[in-house]
């Protein structure tokens, strides 16, 4: 099994290597299905999440085509690609957030700790407690900072008493690097914080329910550079405990925070591999064009 996959990847690589010879972007635009086969190491040993043949359809339009991808333990996986390439859609498959969109259909197996979370009988409520999500725009609830963080533990019954809740709130805020900034105003509305603080509050809210995986959908795109730096630092610390998938438009950010990088293009997973290798020595023509800024 392992060898046969390597062989197909080898073939794909060869096909790809011929594509640059043909030259220009014209060739890339008409690139055929064979060339779109994923290049690189989509699989890892002992994955946290393993995705097999994921297809996503919005009505009749296909947004994700046959994607196979693993998320390792304690790693940050960055997903990059031009707008509309399906990276956010793929991210939302991992905690079934696509269920909330009318007309969206997901096929394929998504194994979280070897359990298929895309199966009909899986209840999304405990799943989403296991796989948390941080959104592009900070979306704190219009409640106090304390209530924001305590929301998840409360609905999942993770704390028995107010004192325990206080503890969870404090430790989550500490881990999100926000405690020192807000400890004197926990009863003030979370919407009154700055954009960067709001986003860290959302991260604290997510880790308060003790997930295994955290999904981040362009978490820094609405933030200033200093807040971005803080969040990136935080992501690196959180990696000790969680697996993190981050969708980003900033290639520098992907290079800074991630260990592995996946490049999506028009619903196809084009290339995945070690972040350093992707950014220094991409194997696929499309990846190279994207990271060198020829389109995107």
């Amino acid at each position: 099994m392992e060898t046969s996959m390597n062989e197909t990847q080898q073939q794909a690589k060869e096909t790809v290597f011929r594509a640059p010879d043909r030259g220009d972007l014209q060739a890339t635009a008409t690139v055929d299905r064979e060339v779109r086969r994923t290049v690189g190491e989509a699989r890892v040993a002992d994955p946290r999440i393993r995705c097999n043949d994921i297809n996503v359809y919005y009505g009749t339009a296909q947004a994700i085509k046959n994607v196979n991808l693993d998320v390792g333990r304690n790693e940050v996986l960055a997903m990059i690609g031009p707008s509309g390439c399906g990276k956010s859609t793929f991210l939302r498959c991992l905690n079934r957030m696509n269920d909330t969109i009318d007309g969206c259909r997901v096929t394929g197996d998504i194994l979280l700790d070897e359990r298929n979370i895309n199966a009909k009988e899986i209840d999304v409520v405990p799943l989403r407690a296991q796989v948390g999500m941080v959104f592009q725009k900070p979306n704190p609830f219009p409640k106090s900072i304390w209530e924001n963080v305590a929301f998840g533990p409360r609905i999942h019954g993770l704390a028995r008493s107010r004192a325990q809740l206080d503890e969870v709130v404090e430790s989550s805020l500490r881990r999100a690097g926000l405690w020192d900034e807000v400890k004197d105003r926990l009863d003030k509305p979370g919407t009154g914080l700055s954009g960067g603080q709001q986003q860290r509050l959302c991260i604290a809210r997510t880790i308060a329910v003790q997930p295994e995986v955290i999904l981040m959908d362009e978490p820094c795109s609405a933030l200033d550079p200093i807040s971005t730096a803080k969040i990136e630092e935080l992501i690196d610390e959180l990696r000790q405990q969680f697996s993190i998938c981050i969708v980003t438009h900033s290639m520098q950010q992907a290079a800074r925070v991630s260990q592995r990088t996946a490049y999506f293009h028009l619903g196809d997973l084009i290339e995945v591999g070690n972040t350093e290798q992707i950014f220094t020595n991409p194997n696929h023509k499309l990846t190279e064009d994207y990271i060198t800024g020829r389109f995107g």
Binding site: V125, G132, F135, F151, G152, I155, R205
Partner: peptide, 22 residues
């Protein structure tokens, strides 16, 4: 805003919890 509902769903809130609490 839908983003508030998404935030609650992403924390594992049920539709009724999302409605009542958010």
């Amino acid at each position: 805003p839908q983003s508030l509902r998404d935030g609650a769903y992403a924390l594992g809130a049920t539709p009724s919890e999302t409605t009542r609490k958010v």
